[in-house]
Nucleic acid binder design. Sequence first.
DNA 1: TTGTAGGCGTTATCAA
DNA 2: TTGATAACGCCTACAA
Lengths: 335, 335
Amino acid sequence: MKKSTIKDISKASGFSNSTVSKALNNNKEISKRTRDKIKNIANSLNYKPNFFASRLRKNVVNNIGIIVPDILNYYFAKVIKGVQLELYKSGYNLTCFFSDESPAIEKKIIKKLRDGSIAGLLISLAKDIHDENTAKNLKDLQSYDIPIVMFDRISNEFDCDKVYMDNFKATFDSINHLCKRGKNKIAFLSPIHDTLIGKERYNGYVEALKSNKINYKSELYIPYNKEDDIESEIIKLTSDNKIDAIICMEPENTVSTHSLILNLGYKIPNDIAVLGFTDGPMYKFIKPSITSVNQHGEYLGKYSAKILLDRINNKLGENFIDEKVPTSLIIRDST
Amino acid sequence: MKKSTIKDISKASGFSNSTVSKALNNNKEISKRTRDKIKNIANSLNYKPNFFASRLRKNVVNNIGIIVPDILNYYFAKVIKGVQLELYKSGYNLTCFFSDESPAIEKKIIKKLRDGSIAGLLISLAKDIHDENTAKNLKDLQSYDIPIVMFDRISNEFDCDKVYMDNFKATFDSINHLCKRGKNKIAFLSPIHDTLIGKERYNGYVEALKSNKINYKSELYIPYNKEDDIESEIIKLTSDNKIDAIICMEPENTVSTHSLILNLGYKIPNDIAVLGFTDGPMYKFIKPSITSVNQHGEYLGKYSAKILLDRINNKLGENFIDEKVPTSLIIRDST
DNA sequence: TTGTAGGCGTTATCAA
DNA sequence: TTGATAACGCCTACAA
């Protein structure tokens, strides 16, 4: 069916454009009778307001953009869910982009977002290391009055609102928990050793050992890259009786370590405890279920979205928000 | 910084609106010298084109909507990733909505999407059972020339382009695979027994048994609801030696069944084989790794998006597409 | 209670 | 190569 406009309705109804417009917007200036008549005609003409005309006139954008490194990452999926829940309440839509962990793609997306289609941007960086080029593109957005909220993977060198977890404390608490369980040979496996987050967690590990009067052993800190074979390393550590607990940074790694240890014939948690950092999708279904750091992804999403909306609506002060969201431990059967 | 418009640039540069507009759009009618001059001024004025004015004038929408039941579902996350990859190539943005498995929320979202913000809709239904009300809202969208592509959870009673997996064949092939491995006491656990998809899979199960000359035993077909305690059921079946294989519909269920069986002291796959239907995020990291049906979520996403774009650009014929995307088995160590 | 008229910012046609 | 003008569809003072 052909699209119709307010003009078509005016013609068909005999009323003027403005009367029609008011009637369709339920303006009480117009008599109920006229309103109903006009609405009926609008219906029969299959009228739909033109989104862009209306937006141009009213000069509001009801769209928020979000860029995350990877939608397949359970944690980011949770954040997105939280964001969506918060935005939906306020009538904002959410346009999603994925950088696929690539700063180059990320840059292209940010550039594209200058087109004015979004009122604000939520972003978790592909690399949390400062990149001058990315910063330039983001600043560009800001110069057009598009506020930015960074979450989780933030850059310390870029000025904007930021929400992230306390990686130091989360690690510190995790190690403390393991110590309370009587563990003192705790291996720390890190495939993210070269990131800001990885470094903070490492610091938390070191400090927690110190505060529990456990000597730091470099052989128990195991930085590695995702391609590396980490299994043989774990096998060696266990067979030499060097460890009684392992803390892992990511779900894949946590689950395969957990499985490996069971397969090697050790008991979890008695022989070796396993603690996973990021809340994995399967932690509670695996037996023994896996203790993990709850990063409250959904909450973080909601909170970031709220800050962004408040910033858009000028409800925040001059200074940027820089807030650490607390984590908590979900203690299950693996520790 | 204050926002500037083309008019501001005209004033500042001395050129007319139309010259400025053309220059900014790199129109070769305008001399290189003038273009550069104008672009410089635009830059210094922090000019950004008004998205809505431009869209109103050009009358194009570059935005696609997608509604999935649950973003935390790994499969849907994969589909969204595929969609995004396809759309990104064509310059379309993707606005994401989640129905949270609720037809009521779904309806609200669909209603909202009448606002003209999207050029087309991708949807996987909250319930694949026909709902007259949902259908009405979707038809409404169609009447405004917004094409719809249903994927995965489709409704047979609604007319639009559809892409989904061959649930019958996928199950049939899975059972065949188990039979080839010498299994003939195959339990079928289904928390989705009341859905279209659940029924098709059930049919595949029954027919595959028949074709392998195995008698169907109703005690091995176990429909249940998510709240139900299924563990005791499995324990009973195994202790009575009633089964030598289990096929599960969902990742959570698959993983916990897998873990349970190991915990009970059975060997996977020798005592009991485990096959998971939907590709779970952790299947390959668990030991023994889990054989599963590959639903090619990312491919399905790409393909659905392609169909939608083709439909939008009138590249498809009169008839709606109704296509089953083949699945494949990822054979791992659990079978 | 209804109508007139102008403008939101951009782009496209046509004329200069 | 540049400029004048109208139009995209909607909304809203203001007038009637």
